[in-house]
């Protein structure tokens, strides 16, 4: 699915997904995130880069990690932010998405960060509104900042991306995290393997450039990274597998299974974890787990994304209010 609203090779006007985002754009985001992470470790964790920029966090689906992560990223960059969710908004009064969004836009935000249960909601809003849109997860479609923070965490741990063997295991069909990761990883030259029960593997997934396994063990063999996905009980009911205990027996990550991976393999999970459904306690809390690093890195990566989107927005506006010296000021700075 090509998306003309996405980055292409140019400035990152919106971040709607990683589908069709070139590897160099991903590298740029990851490189800038290194410096953003430095800011987070300083005694004074704030830079004025987005002073005077208004960001609306529009979360029409429950989220703790992503919402807080975006909020902190925005505050570290000095943006002015407002957040709202369905229970506190007119959505519960029957307003349509477009009407809500138009009213939001009438308040003149610069960037809209949206989490929505409907696939394509961010894309729809990016076309309908003038502000920049950042996708914080749309239905079972994409969750690009999660994939970017995963790529950042992998690169931080392994020193590279190209040529690594990464397993993504679990409910691939209903996972926006898996989709975004597959797009991003394939683009960065990673050897991606997906593993899960047949009921959780979408048809034609191999066309995205991944190897498909219906058992966990052969997929994990020799892997550098094992990424376990959450079984989303709230989306699935219990229809796709007989019981959580049975799922754990065949697709849960245990020490026995992990011993098949590379000896330096790391274990990832986008959270929230279902302990003893997809992952064993020992591993989630063990030395190979980078699950909490993922959370920290999420803020840095979102800072990088917001900064790049904001710069692209300013470039697109192309205001030349700086008078005749603006070009010189630029050159002095470089």
């Amino acid at each position: 699915m090509m998306d003309p609203m996405n980055a292409g090779g140019g400035p990152l006007r919106h971040l709607l997904g990683l589908d069709n985002v070139p590897a160099e754009t991903i590298q740029l985001i990851l490189d800038q995130a290194i410096h953003m992470k430095d800011i987070m470790s300083r005694p004074f964790k704030k830079v004025p880069a987005m002073r005077g920029t208004t960001v609306v966090n529009f979360f029409v689906e429950p989220s703790t990690r992503t919402r807080i992560s975006f909020a902190l990223a925005e505050k570290h960059l000095s943006a002015d932010t407002v957040s709202f969710s369905p229970s506190t908004s007119s959505l519960s009064k029957g307003e349509t998405l477009l009407d809500t969004a138009r009213n939001l836009e009438a308040m003149q935000p610069d960037i809209l960060v949206i989490r929505h249960r409907a696939t394509g909601a961010p894309h729809f809003l990016a076309r309908a509104l003038n502000c920049s849109v950042v996708n914080a997860g749309d239905g079972i479609h994409e969750h690009p900042t999660q994939a970017l923070l995963d790529l950042f965490t992998i690169r931080e741990s392994k020193g590279r991306l190209a040529g690594l063997k990464v397993v993504i295991a679990g409910d691939i069909a209903h996972s926006r995290v898996a989709r975004s990761n597959i797009f991003g990883m394939v683009s960065c030259g990673i050897d991606v393997r997906v593993a899960g029960p047949r009921t959780m593997l979408p048809q034609g997934i191999e066309n995205l450039g991944v190897k498909v396994f219906d058992r966990l063990e052969p997929a994990v063999e020799g892997a550098d990274v094992v990424m376990m996905l959450r079984i989303q009980r709230e989306r699935l009911g219990e229809a796709l597998f007989p019981s959580a205990r049975e799922y754990f027996r065949f697709f849960g990550l245990t020490n026995d299974v992990l011993s098949l991976a590379d000896k330096d393999a790391i274990v990832m999970h986008p959270g929230p974890i279902n302990r003893c459904v997809e992952i064993d306690h020992d591993i989630a809390d063990g030395p190979r787990s980078v699950i909490l690093d993922q959370v920290t890195n999420g803020i840095a990566v979102r800072m990088a994304v917001l900064h790049l989107v904001n710069q692209a927005r300013l470039e697109a506006r192309g205001v030349g209010t700086g008078g005749p010296t603006s070009v010189e000021a630029m050159e002095e700075g470089t």
Binding site: D31, H35, H307, G318, G320, G322, M330, G333
Partner: peptide, 17 residues
């Protein structure tokens, strides 16, 4: 991240260390 010319819409500078 401290420049005063961001709003001029100049080409994006890359952050350094």
């Amino acid at each position: 991240l401290y420049r005063d010319d961001a709003f001029l819409g100049l080409p994006r500078p890359v952050i350094g260390e």
